[in-house]
Amino acid sequence: MKLNTNSNIYTFIYMTVVVVIVAVLLAFVNQTLKQRQDDNKQLDMQKQILGALKVDYADQDPAKVYEGIIAVGDTLQFGEKQVFVAHLNDTTVKYVLPLAGKGLWGGIGGYLALDEDKNTIYGVNFNHESETPGLGAKIVEYEFREKFEGKQIRKDNVVVSVAVLKKGKTCDAGEDYQVDAISGATITSEGVSKMLEVNLKEYAKFLATGEVVKEDQQAHKVLYVVNGKPVNNIDFLSPDEIIETKVFTKKEALDCYGIEGLEEVIVVITKEKED
């Protein structure tokens, strides 16, 4: 009997068999190789951290070198993120902060190593998923990363980060707080700038005082509304400017402003408003 390969039932069974075989095969391969892949990922992360710390591991095993610098447990936990505490040969302590952001085509990330003062950049390492080769992908090259070294991230004890700007432009914090962007890669450069700012501000409290508290864990519980404009803090107001403050609870805030997920909403009215 010749099989009718065009019958519905044959087609149905054929597809089921094909899909099951492929699924089993891929699941099997994935399971077998998972350990190796995870090890590779771990090793890649360690290499990147060593890169940020400017440690040359040449022909040594990078994993061994890494363990010598950052022992197990030499990390500070910030929510899901970790800050690595590195002890280099010259007995100085460096703090390595993880970075994650968006480039032009996909995610970008990296590690930023700070000196013991939690202010001066010791070294930085970037990686990317799919930035344009020859343009945005240049962020991984030392030529670009080198520019960050020695820069300070805090001005008057406030984290201002380091901006990546086109030649000729100046950021608000002044020329000392910026580096030149990669020409032709505007969006990737902006992505790096934004990534640094957002990630560093998350550790603002830690950088200033050494306390292990993630910035958004406490700051975002309270929303300030100054003259109808929502802001994250009211440090910029001097006490005698303020005429009236009202505190709303979570429920009232939701009813009045439609804002969810906050513990309190503080409404502030200042003098200028009256004028």
């Binding site: 390969t5 065009n6 044959y10 087609t11 054929y14 597809m15 094909v18 899909v19 492929v22």
Partner: peptide
Amino acid sequence: TIPMRVRIIVQLV
């Protein structure tokens, strides 16, 4: 063995 009507899908898989 490939059923003609779904050959593209089989190739894709």
